[in-house]
Design a protein around this nucleic acid. Structure first.
Lengths: 340, 340
DNA sequence: TAACCTTACGAAAACGTTTGCGTGTGGATA
DNA sequence: TATCCACACGCAAACGTTTTCGTAAGGTTA
């Protein structure tokens, strides 16, 4: 178990100074060709790799991007990460990922840990708990220390920074309009409680779409779910004996659960009830019937977020701060869960 | 945009030495109570946080675990990460995740990057390409530099290190046995090409189970898929006009795709054909009918892997090396895709 | 031969910590 | 008054780099 070899060791072995070794490896003209070759051969033999930690300390930058997401077991977020990695790798950045598990405390810990030396900037989607508590001091602090932050998807309006979002309201409107255009009249929505920003926005989009069609929204057609993991029973009793002809679900899980409940209640999708979901994940694609849904283009979000961040990281220091909010277009993916 | 505050700055402001500040913050008795309080108050005010990079350099350990997985958009792997994070957090370690995207080159790059300063040890499941190329020099090198590696799921037999696996063969046998015990006689298998270690092992388990039942395996009941992303057409023509009464699929995607194909071919699951999958992911749970499957207990794998790694990291230096292979039990989760 | 220029290398500082040890100050003791 | 001991603090090294600057040796020029 030989330890990693350092410049110092090479220098000692070759009986030259550390600086000579460093320069030789960088092909500096200061060093004679002879010495250069000798050093390089030796370094190769012993498989010398510069120590990143030392470099980071010296350069005061790490060339890595920290990504913090609410849950790692979530298809949408992983596609975003895919996008981030794509551009990060192109630009020579590494990506490290941490999950907050939707816990405020873990979000704070992870951010502080990464902020204290491991990453130059952050791409983050805040935890559910953080949105609920409305406590953003950790993010503000990170920014005030000069580390750029790009928020995506679950963003925070009050925070002044770059953001990448979709137009949740518009997406929801598109979804609802699609149902309306199919002739559906009794359209229910299964959504989250209001403190989840994207849930609320999508609910509003649904309401707007109905209004534009001169349909009065009905309270009993709106289900707001708090405990996502146990949504089945709630959805089941919500749908029980309800004469709806369409459902708009603000996420994939609600959509498939609704489909399953309907199936159990003996109703057919899309013949009796049409369903439109949100987020184009594996479930929507593989379900039978496959689900019509609103795609958020997660990868594109990741790409844009990474670009914004790297621009900030590599931008001039003294340029007046300017923050952008990029809005990614959603699109309706028509599949089998809505009738033609 | 005030910069991060360092010991040096605090020292300067308070007109004491750096060491005094450092000691004061650690409540050293060497420092007078008065000074300690003053320093701490100041540090708090300016929100001092020790620089991890500097600490890592000094201590020559980072207290972080590197996890490298083939794909991040994969439910099984994310559950493993969940397990790793659980024990890592308990023990004061951080977890950073990189994905190799099933690319050998990216695996090498990520490993080298993390190995050169960012992590103390690794938990890794190798890329498809790596299994194909049989080139493990990067992993061997990492280990020879004194950094422990724990392999999981897609492991490499030739490598001498800790491993956490399931008994893929046994799991497959259990799956097949279950079908046999239901009275199925014509059991097809949809599996991967042989160079994917787990695919091969599962195929072998299937064959063993048949043999134990004195059923001769039929070549035309075995489908080996190379291009996972386009499996639908292959599965479709494989199943076309085939009189099977059961299918064992070595992963979730194959299982649902088979179900979808059968559905299109007018066959009912489980009435006409029973299906057993492998990996208990979202798809299996939410599909209609929900899928009987072999659970790999990803979280448990992560937990065990993290424990093995941390044991090595915190163990005595001069203890003779000893490597364990932990085999996690799989279990059959009975759902609706196999008839009673 | 004195002055100068190249060439080839080394010393040292810096990044931010921690920590063993040295030391000045003041009070208590003999 | 000389000695000793706590006490409270500072110095400096170390971790592994990079890079600026200084400098010795040798050769060239006048």
């Amino acid at each position: 178990m030989k330890q990693k070899v350092t410049l110092k060791q090479i220098a000692k072995e070759l009986d030259v100074s550390i600086s000579t070794v460093s320069k030789a490896l960088k092909d500096s003209v200061e060093i004679s060709l002879d010495t250069r070759q000798k050093v390089k051969a030796f370094a190769k033999l012993y498989n010398y790799k510069p120590n990143n930690i030392a470099l980071s300390l010296k350069n005061r930058k790490t060339k890595t991007i920290g990504v913090i997401i609410p849950e790692i077991v979530h298809h949408f977020f992983t596609t975003v990460i895919g996008g981030v990695e794509k551009v990060a790798n192109e630009k020579g950045y590494n990506v490290i990922i941490c999950s907050s598990n939707n816990s405020f405390d873990k979000e704070v810990i992870n951010l502080e840990m990464l902020a204290s030396g491991s990453a130059d900037g952050f791409i983050l989607s805040v935890a559910k708990e953080t949105q609920q508590k409305k406590d953003y001091h950790h993010i503000e602090e990170t920014m005030s220390q000069g580390m750029p932050v790009v928020l995506f998807d679950r963003i925070i309006d009050e925070l002044v920074c770059d953001k990448v979002i979709i137009d949740d309201g518009k997406g929801a409107q598109t979804a609802t309009n699609h149902l309306l255009s199919l002739g559906c009249k009794k359209i229910a929505i299964i959504t989250t409680v209001d403190y989840i920003s994207v849930g609320k926005l999508r609910t509003n989009g649904y309401l707007r779409a109905l209004r534009a069609y001169d349909i009065t929204a009905r309270e009993d057609y709106i289900l707001k779910i708090e405990d996502i993991d146990n949504c089945e029973s709630e959805i089941s009793s919500f749908l029980k004996d309800k004469e709806v002809d369409a459902i708009f679900a603000v996420n994939e899980l609600f959509a498939v659960t609704a489909a399953r409940v309907l199936h159990e209640q003996g109703k057919k999708v899309p013949d009796d009830v049409s369903i439109v979901g949100f987020t184009d994940g594996i479930l929507s694609k593989h379900f039978i019937p496959s689900l019509t849904t609103i795609s958020q283009h997660g990868e594109e979000m990741g790409i844009r977020a990474a670009k914004l961040l790297i621009d900030k990281l590599e931008g001039e220091e003294d340029v007046p701060e300017e923050y952008k909010t990029v809005i990614i277009d959603t699109s309706l993916i028509q599949r089998q869960s809505t009738k033609k």
